[in-house]
């Protein structure tokens, strides 16, 4: 039996909004560690990894590891029926073919439940080893979102370079080209407004902007984003989910013809 009670239901709503445009169907895995998901987009260019740790739930019961295949668009539709202040409980029976989402409003005078059929998904799980990255940049998530949006009005791809000068985002298109440099800046009022650059080695990689724009749907989950880059690896954009875990997006680079 599975029963997960999340007081801050809005988190789950935001998580679904962050993933549903990138991934259509995915398996949610539930174990003693937490509620997790790993899925690739249909073209296998990007991957999303979600972890909501068991400690972050008010009540977490998972008698045995369970995998639940769901259409993320349908889950998102159901979660739109939950208020932002609602408590969300996810329930499933071992071996059952449905999952139930229950929403309780803060006054506890309205309780809704939605039962959804699970899907049998044949999804591939990739092993992602810990890696040493050439550069790790932490910056305000809203700033990153703004940069991706602004550059995609000019070009389709972005070259992200990290040097001692800072992190540079460059694009080119029919109307011209653009460069945005963010320097390290730790003299800010709040730590989440800082741009912090850790660089072991200069790195420069090219990425498709449409995927980065899709990742920025997670902006409301975290005030900061951490971008990890290595010349031999996909980019990782990590949004921490306060007290619970993270949502990480991996993006394979583009290379010269």
């Amino acid at each position: 039996m599975l029963e997960l009670r999340l007081v801050q239901g809005s988190l789950l709503k935001k998580v679904l909004e962050a993933m549903k445009d990138l991934v259509t169907d995915a398996n949610f895995d539930c174990s003693a560690t937490g509620f997790s998901l790993q899925a690739m987009d249909s073209s296998h260019v990007a991957l999303v990894a979600l972890l909501l740790r068991s400690e972050g739930f008010e009540h977490y019961r998972c008698d045995r590891n369970i995998t639940m295949g769901m259409n993320l668009n349908n889950v998102s539709k159901l979660l739109k029926c939950a208020g932002n202040d609602d408590i969300i409980t996810i329930k499933a029976d071992d071996g059952g073919d449905t999952v139930t989402f229950m929403f309780e409003n803060p006054k506890q005078d309205k309780i809704s439940d939605f039962e959804m059929k699970l899907m049998d998904l044949d999804s591939e799980h990739l092993g992602i080893p810990d890696a040493e990255y050439h550069a790790i940049v932490r910056m305000p998530s809203l700033e990153f979102s703004r940069i991706c949006k602004d550059l995609s009005s000019i070009g389709d791809t972005v070259v992200i370079s990290v040097t001692k000068e800072g992190i540079k985002f460059s694009t080119r298109g029919d109307i011209g080209n653009a460069n945005i440099v963010c320097r390290q800046n730790t003299t800010v009022d709040k730590p989440e407004e800082a741009t912090v650059i850790q660089m072991n080695e200069a790195v420069s990689l090219t990425f498709a902007l449409r995927y980065l724009n899709s990742f920025t749907k997670a902006t409301s989950l975290s005030e900061t984003v951490t971008i990890s880059l290595s010349s031999e690896l996909p980019l990782v954009a990590e949004y921490k989910i306060a007290d619970m875990g993270y949502i990480k997006f991996y993006l394979a680079p583009k290379i010269e013809d």
Partner: peptide
């Protein structure tokens, strides 16, 4: 412009 690599070229199935 350029060739888009796939995630599966970097990480293997478990």
């Amino acid at each position: 412009s350029g060739v888009q690599l796939s995630i599966t070229e970097f990480y293997r199935s478990t």
